[in-house]
Design a protein around this nucleic acid. Structure first.
Lengths: 156, 156
DNA sequence: TCAAACTAAATCGTACACGATTAATTCACG
DNA sequence: CGTGAATTAATCGTGTACGATTTAGTTTGA
């Protein structure tokens, strides 16, 4: 079964792989953002998390997780760090004690301006028209959805 | 300085961010590949590393690092695991004892077919024409380069 | 010649990421 | 009601990532 496929794909070096292109671009964003984030005192995943909370405050851990494609095993420690730094508050829901509600503190909301500066900085460093970025975002989202769907079909 | 920018960008939710689209797509690839990789007994970064070695065998750690945008602090343990599993060999260069040469073993090369199956699997699950993928790869590479260059200008 | 500067990989500490499990709470159904 | 199933976070173990430092080896220049 693995015999003949080689011929179709053998020529594909690392650079022709979409997964590698995405891997590299992700790395590049990470590294680009890292020093800027450092000035804000947070990491890149923490930044993404705060963005999600700026968009919608008072989310449950699992709600945030759906948004960010993460689960409690990753989020819980990350959120604890954000809490320790005073950017968010975590409290168990009164209605359902299983749930933990995550909210921005005033300090967390105040980070917003810095966060927006970061976006502006990345934006202005990309010599790419806004429409192109929009298209790219759409294409990437399509691919992400296809992979997510395919994964459910193939494994579980 | 951070006052007025808010207006330009305030509307940008998480979903409009290129960095988030890339982050999501990367996640999706990771999760899609993970179960397939598991059958091969390796992780996704290990897979990428093996791909790089299939492309060019007998690389130095730092050479591999340039290719994969990783450094010895990440690569050394990863390579040690691949060595323990018998897929690669690590040996110090005779000419320069500081360098460690990484080579594929027979077992490592034999993984190639499985690796190619994985590519085929991902490929056939993406309802996207090859040309579109090629374009995407180029665009992502451009963005990666711009960010890498910008990073050098801005920070270090 | 030989110490200082340089280089390559390894090591260390912290922070994600995720599969698997656990603990606490709520729900559902007899 | 009450107990078992389901749900929600938290915890644990392993494997990336990466900044900073360390160790070992090489090159350079006075």
């Amino acid at each position: 079964m693995a015999e003949k496929k080689s011929e179709e794909f053998q020529g594909f070096g690392l650079d022709q792989h979409l997964c590698f292109a995405i891997y590299k671009a992700n790395h590049a964003f990470n590294r680009f953002y890292k020093p800027v984030m450092k000035q804000l005192g947070i990491t890149y995943p923490q930044y993404i998390t705060l963005l999600a909370l700026l968009e919608k405050d008072h989310q449950r851990v699992s709600e945030l997780g759906e948004r960010l494609f993460l689960e409690s095993n990753t989020l819980t420690p990350l959120l604890k760090r954000l809490e320790e730094m005073g950017f968010i508050a975590r409290e168990r829901s009164k209605e359902d004690e299983r749930q933990v509600i995550v909210s921005l503190t005033k300090e967390g909301r105040d980070l917003s301006d810095g966060v927006i500066d970061v976006q502006h900085c990345a934006f202005s460093n990309l010599n790419v028209p806004v429409e192109t970025i929009g298209q790219l975002v759409e294409q990437l989202n399509d691919i992400q959805e296809m992979l997510t769907d395919a994964k459910e079909k193939v494994s579980g």
